[in-house]
Design a protein around this nucleic acid. Structure first.
Lengths: 130, 130
DNA sequence: TTAATAACAGTAATGATTATCATTATTATT
DNA sequence: AATAATAATGATAATCATTACTGTTATTAA
């Protein structure tokens, strides 16, 4: 197994992701990292993003928008992609463990992880609609 | 609104997607479409895939594998991406409507659609494990 | 202090998807 | 049926997110 060496930039990347709930993509992350490290390379951002994802320190969200989005919050929760404003919002969801257990025993499968993405209207856009 | 004209190839594309439960990507679809229409263009495949997705006749599955996958079954169901064999399997799931209702009222949001992807072991790989 | 090697910047390459454009097929209208 | 409008198509070029490569620098173990 390949050892991992300390990296100031990787630390800052986690910190950046944990400081926002906007679920940014690599481009946003890159431009914000450049404010801290003006000459950081885009390759470094991608390399660290995939390493951190692999190790479970961050989450990769495939929402079908053409770019991958990332989440510094690895606690179980769901996401809403709002068709009104396009934002990706966190949805606290306590019901999935129960669903897991039922489905695991029904299908004889093992569920290690999941990704639940809702499409619809966030509370702000839903309010505007009425 | 742009009118839609009949297309033999689009019809065959839906039919192809409905004939399999393998959740193929554009490349697989392209090569199978070429068996029916030897000179069909890859662009035609992509164009029809996005049109059909937009109109809700098929589903686009963003599972984070680098390519988009497509599903001809638009009835509510979930998917398992098996970490053993890599397959994408259908998971019949009757529990989500209930979860929707609870979450909609908790968050004052409107849920139009959802995509639930499990990661774990399919029943075959789970059996082999023991 | 040295040796091994992970992380890095800079940049080129890859590969999935989208756009363009000239031609063909479909459909509404005469 | 003939015509006109325009959607669909094949071929191909362009785009753009992501990955790979290469020489250099930083980290850490010995």
């Amino acid at each position: 197994m390949k050892q991992i060496k300390h990296s100031e930039k990787r630390d800052a990347l986690i910190k950046l992701l944990q400081s926002t709930d906007s679920h940014p993509d690599a481009d946003w992350i890159y431009s914000h990292m450049r404010e801290i490290f003006p000459n950081i390379s885009l390759g470094t951002v991608y390399r660290n993003l995939s390493q951190l994802t692999e190790q479970g320190h961050i989450l990769k969200l495939s929402v079908g928008t053409g770019t991958e989005h990332y989440d510094g919050n690895v606690n179980t929760h769901s996401h809403l992609v709002c068709s009104g404003c396009g934002a990706i919002k966190d949805i606290h969801n306590i019901y999935m463990d129960d669903v897991f257990n039922k489905i695991e025993s029904e299908h004889n499968i093992q569920i290690d992880n999941h990704c639940l993405i809702f499409q619809g209207l966030c509370s702000e856009c839903n309010k505007l609609k009425n």
